Simulated assay, not measured.
Amino acid sequence: MKMNPWTLSVLLLLAGPLGADPGWHVEYPDSFCVVEGSTATIPCSFTHPAGLRVERVVWCPNHEICQDPTPNVYDSSNVRADSRFLYLGDRVRSCTLKIIKTVKQDAATYRFRFETNGNKYNKYTGRKGVRVTVTNGEDVKVRSSVADNVVKEGGQVTLTCTSASSFHQLDVHWYRNGHALSETGPALHLSCLTNDNAGNYTCSLDSSGRKTSAPWSLVVVEDEGRHKCDSDRSVTVSVVSVLLAVILLLLAGLVFAKRNRRHAQKKASEVFQKQEVDRKQEAVGASKEVSYATVHFKSNSLRSAPGPEHEIVYSEVVR
C-alpha cells in the first residue's frame, strides 16, 4: 500500500524513532495532584540508544508529540519559556519538572520530548504523559499517630498532612498556633514532649500560609513518673561534658609539648652557635702563633751568623 510521505513522518513521530525501538523510553507517573498555590515536583526519567547525544529537551501541555507550533512550558532552546516551570533534569537521564505556585490553568496532560543528534527521526516523546489536576486545598487535613489529642510529658506523636488527592513531592509547611515551624515535609515528628509543644497544629501546601488545614489540637499532660527523655538528655549532657574536657586536656598537652620542643630547639641552636664561635677563635689564635714563630726564627738567624765582611773590617781597624 502506497503511503503519503507526510503521513509516514507523522506515524514515525508518534511511534518513536525507527518504529518504537525499545532503547527509547520516557517514564513518569500516570497522574499527579497539585494544590493551587503550592509547589510540586513531577519525577521523570528517559533513555535512548547508546552513541547519541541529546541536544534539546521540551515539556508541553496537551499535545501527543510536543511538535511545533505547540506552546511549551519548557524548551531548552527557548529561554523565554514560562518561568514557573523549572526544569530540574539534565540531558543524560533525568527529565524532572518543578511547577512553582500552581494555578487552576495548570491542569493539563504534560509530556516530555527530547531530540538527539543524527537524522531528523532521532527524537522521542513520552506519549503516555502525566495528567496533572489542581485542587483548591480545602480537603487537606492533619492526621495523628495517637488515638486522641492528649499525650503525656516525655511522649511522642507524629502528625501527617494528608489530602484526598494523592499528591507527590509537595512542599508541606507546618504551623503551631499560627506560627511557622522550621520543619517541612508531609510528616511532622514530635518527641520528648513538654508543655511547650502543646497547641494547635495546621499544615499547608501553600507557602504563603493562607490556605491551611483545620487545626489539630495537642494537649500535653504532666507525668509524675520519671521521664525517659529527661534522663537520656542528662546522660547526653554528661557525655558531651566529658568529651569536651578530654578534648581540652589533649589541646593543652599539645600546646605544652610544642612549647617544650621549641625551647629545646632554641637551646640546641644556642649551643651550636657557641661551639662555632669557639672553633673560629681557636683557629685565629693558632694562625697568630705560627706567624710569630716564623719571625723570631729569622731574627735569630741574622744575629748568630755575621757575614765575612764584618770580620774583615774589624781586622783592618786593629792594624
Rank of each mutant, 00 (worst) to 15 (best):
G225H: 05
K228R: 14
K280D: 03
K98Y: 04
P5T: 05
C95I: 05
T160N: 14
F272P: 00
A187V: 15
L250R: 02
L170H: 09
C192K: 05
R56T: 15
D148S: 05
S269T: 09
V237D: 04
L243R: 11
R56L: 15
N197H: 11
G126I: 01
E115G: 00
P29W: 05
E270T: 13
A268E: 10
M3C: 07
R53G: 10
R131K: 10
S241Y: 08
D68V: 13
E153K: 04
P61I: 14
V242G: 02
E138S: 14
S191T: 10
G51A: 12
A50Q: 08
T39H: 13
K104E: 00
S315Y: 12
A286H: 07
K267A: 03
R233W: 08
Y175C: 07
V240Y: 02
S315K: 09
N177W: 04
C229G: 06
V142R: 09
T47G: 11
H63E: 12
S31L: 06
K120F: 05
L18H: 10
V35Q: 02
Q105V: 00
A81F: 13
S76R: 12
N300S: 14
T70N: 10
A252F: 02
R262I: 02
D139N: 14
L249K: 04
Q156S: 13
A293G: 12
R261W: 02
Q169D: 12
N4M: 08
G118W: 00
A107I: 05
F46G: 07
C60Q: 09
D75A: 13
Y28R: 12
C203F: 11
G253N: 04
H310W: 00
R279T: 04
H179D: 06
